[in-house]
Design a binder for these strands. Structure first.
Lengths: 343, 343
DNA sequence: CTGTTAGCGCATTCAC
DNA sequence: GTGAATGCGCTAACAG
C-alpha cells in the first residue's frame, strides 16, 4: 500500500510548524500569503490529504450525512437519492446510503449512523409506527429530514401530496364511469399509503358513491411476484375491477404481468393508472396514465433543508409538500359495459 | 441536541477503567463475564455508542467503503449498488455512494474518499483513459474493485461479457435477415462500449458480411433526450436501420420515443433489442428482446471480492466475468422486405 | 484479568 | 503572523 502522509510531514518540508500548515489550509484563518504558497507547494509535492477522522474528532463534525431507505434500487428512491447526493456534494458533504431491507435493519443502521457521528440524516422508514425506531431517531441528536414519512418527531419533512394525487386519479376513473376500482399501494404503515387510501376514499365519497366502489389492497411486500399473485387473485373474482391503480415501480410490472396473464387488454378490458411516472409507465403498452411529481426537486429540497438545519440557518421546522399532476395516456377508457362501438 | 456519552462515562457508572470498558465491548479480548455484564448494563443505561472517529483514528480502519458511479439513478447501477451494499452490511461495513456526474467530479470524490480513509473502493469510471484519474486511483493505497471497467491497474474486477453478448445479439439479428443494424451504446471510452462494439463487429465479420452492415453510434451523454434526437436523425436517413440495439436504460426510452415519433411500428417496421433486461424492456410495447445478466449477483460479488481483499484473504487479483443470455420477446422479426403475408 | 499510560492526526487555545 | 502545548475519544502496550 502507501505511506500515509500527515500534517507533520508537510510542516517539515515547508519548514514551518504543523499549526501553520493547519491554518494555511483553512481559508478563514490568519496566514500570510507567503506561508500559504509554501504550504500549498509542500502539500502538492507530498500529495497530502488531511485525515478526516482526526479532523472530525477535533471539530466534532463529520461532514457526512446518512441516508436510509428501504431499497436503493427502487427507481422512485434512486432518483431522489441521486439528486440529494448531488446537492450535498456541492455543499461539501458525503452521503452514506444504506438499505434497511424493508425495515429489518433500521435499528442497526441508525446506530451505525450514530457511531459515525453523522451530521444529519435523510430517512424514509418502512413503518411509521414502530416505537423503537422512533425512540432511536428521537434522541439521535442530529438534524433529520424525513422523506415522505409522517411520524411524531420534531424535524423537517419533504413529501408528496399523495392524498390530492389519489383523489385526482380516482375522481378521473369515476368520471369515466368506473365503479370497481382496485388500489394497489404500500400499506397504511407509511404515510404515502395512508394518504393515498384517504384520498381515494374521499374521491368516492365526494362522488356520492358507496365505499364498495373502491377496493384497497395494501402491501408490505412491494415486489413484482408478490403483487403479481395478488392482482391475479383480484382478477379472478367474479366482480373483477375495471380499473387498477398501482405504484409505478415493480408493483406496476407485477400488475401488468397479471393482466397479461389473464389475457386482458389495456384499456379495452381494464384501465390502469400508475402512481409515479416511471419510464415503465411511459413505455408500457399502451402508455400508462400516470401521476407525476418531481423526484429530483424533492431530493434536492431534502438535501437543502438538511444543510440549512445543520448549518444553523434554519428556524422552525418546515414541511415541503410537492404537488402531483395527472399525465393522461392511453391506458384509461370507460369500463367495457359503457363502451360503444366496435368489439 | 443530546449529550454525547463517552467511554469514560460508562466506565464511571460501571466502576471500572475505560480500558476495561473497551475490552468488554470487544468480543475477542480478555474480560471476565462479570465485567462484561456490568459494562453491558452501563452501556444500555447510558445508550452509549462508541465514537467511530476515535476508533478509526486509533485502529486505522474506517469500516467504510466508497462507491463511485456516474449516476446512482441509472437502474443498471442502482441494482448493483443495492446488492453490494447488502453484502457489505452483513460484513459490518457502511457504504458511501457518490455520483461522479458523468465523470466531472471523479477527482474530487476520490480525494474525499482518501481523506476519509475508506477501507476499500467500488468504482466505475466514466472514462477508462483519463490518466489523472488513473494516477489518483493507483496510489490511493486501498483495495479497489472495478465495476465493468478495464484500466491498467492491479485490482480485482467484476464485469459482464459484453463482447459475447453483443455478438449474440447481432448474430441473431443477422440471422433474421437484417443488413442495416444500428448500435446505440456508451462510448469506447469505457469497457462496455468497447467490448460491445468489438463483439458486434465480430458477428458481422464472422457472417461474412461487410462492416457497413453495422452502424455504431456511441454516446457520452446517455440521457433520454440526447438519444432521442440521435435516433430520430438515424431514422431520417434514406437507408434507415431495420434494427436497433440499445442500452435498456434511458437510452431505450429515448429510442422508443424516436421510433414512435416516426410512426414506425415494432417489430413490423423496425426490430429492437435491449442490452440489459430492465422492466422497461419487459413491458414496453411489444416486449423487447433483451440481453440479460445478473446484476444482483454482480453487485454481491464485487462486495465479496472487496471484503476478502481488505481482510487479507485474497491472493492474486481476480476478474469475475458474468455471462449474458438473450431473452427473446416480440420485438424482433425479419426486416420488412423479407416479411411475407399481410401488409 | 484489570488499571495506567501513551498516542492515533489534527485544530485550537495561548504566548510570543 | 507564527510556534508550542493541549486534548478530541478511543485502543493497545505495558505493568501489576
Amino acid at each position: 500500500m502507501k505511506e500515509p502522509v500527515k500534517i507533520g510531514d508537510v510542516a517539515k518540508l515547508a519548514g514551518v510548524s504543523s499549526s501553520s500548515v493547519s491554518r494555511a489550509l483553512n481559508p478563514d484563518r490568519y496566514a500570510s500569503e507567503e506561508l500559504r504558497a509554501r504550504v500549498a507547494e509542500a502539500v502538492a509535492k507530498l500529495g497530502y490529504e488531511p485525515n478526516a477522522f482526526a479532523q472530525s474528532l477535533r471539530v466534532q463534525s463529520s461532514r457526512t450525512i446518512g441516508c436510509m431507505v428501504s431499497d436503493v434500487a427502487n427507481p422512485l428512491y434512486a432518483e431522489i437519492i441521486g439528486a440529494a447526493e448531488a446537492r450535498l456534494q456541492e455543499a461539501g458533504y458525503l452521503m452514506v446510503v444504506a438499505n434497511s431491507q424493508s425495515g429489518s435493519r433500521e435499528l442497526d443502521l441508525l446506530n451505525m449512523f450514530r457511531r459515525r457521528r453523522m451530521d444529519g440524516l435523510l430517512v424514509t422508514l418502512d413503518d411509521d409506527t414502530r416505537e423503537d425506531v422512533l425512540a432511536v431517531l428521537k434522541d439521535s441528536g442530529v438534524p433529520l429530514v424525513l422523506l415522505d414519512r409522517d411520524i411524531n418527531l420534531s424535524c423537517d419533512r419533504v413529501g408528496v401530496d399523495h392524498r390530492q394525487g389519489a383523489y385526482a386519479v380516482v375522481s378521473y376513473l369515476l368520471s369515466l364511469g368506473h365503479r370497481s376500482i382496485l388500489l394497489e399501494t404500500p400499506s397504511h404503515r407509511v404515510r404515502p399509503g395512508r394518504e393515498r387510501i384517504a384520498g381515494a376514499e374521499a374521491a368516492v365519497r365526494d362522488a356520492g358513491l358507496p365505499p364498495s366502489v373502491l377496493k384497497v389492497s395494501d402491501h408490505v411486500d412491494l415486489s413484482q411476484p408478490h403483487v403479481f399473485s395478488d392482482v391475479l387473485q383480484e382478477l379472478a373474482r367474479p366482480s373483477r375491477p375495471t380499473a387498477i391503480v398501482t405504484l409505478g415501480t415493480a408493483m406496476l410490472a407485477g400488475t401488468l404481468s397479471a393482466i397479461e396473464a389473464n389475457r386482458l387488454r389495456i384499456p379495452e378490458d381494464i384501465s390502469v393508472v400508475s402512481i409515479g411516472d416511471t419510464t415503465l409507465a411511459q413505455f408500457a403498452a399502451p402508455g400508462i396514465t400516470a401521476l407525476r411529481w418531481d423526484l429530483k426537486q424533492l431530493g434536492r429540497t431534502a438535501a437543502e433543508l438538511l444543510i440549512e438545519r445543520i448549518e444553523g440557518r434554519a428556524g422552525t421546522y418546515r414541511t415541503v409538500t410537492f404537488p402531483t399532476e395527472l399525465v393522461l395516456r392511453r391506458s384509461c377508457v370507460p369500463p367495457a359495459e359503457l363502451q360503444m362501438g366496435a368489439k
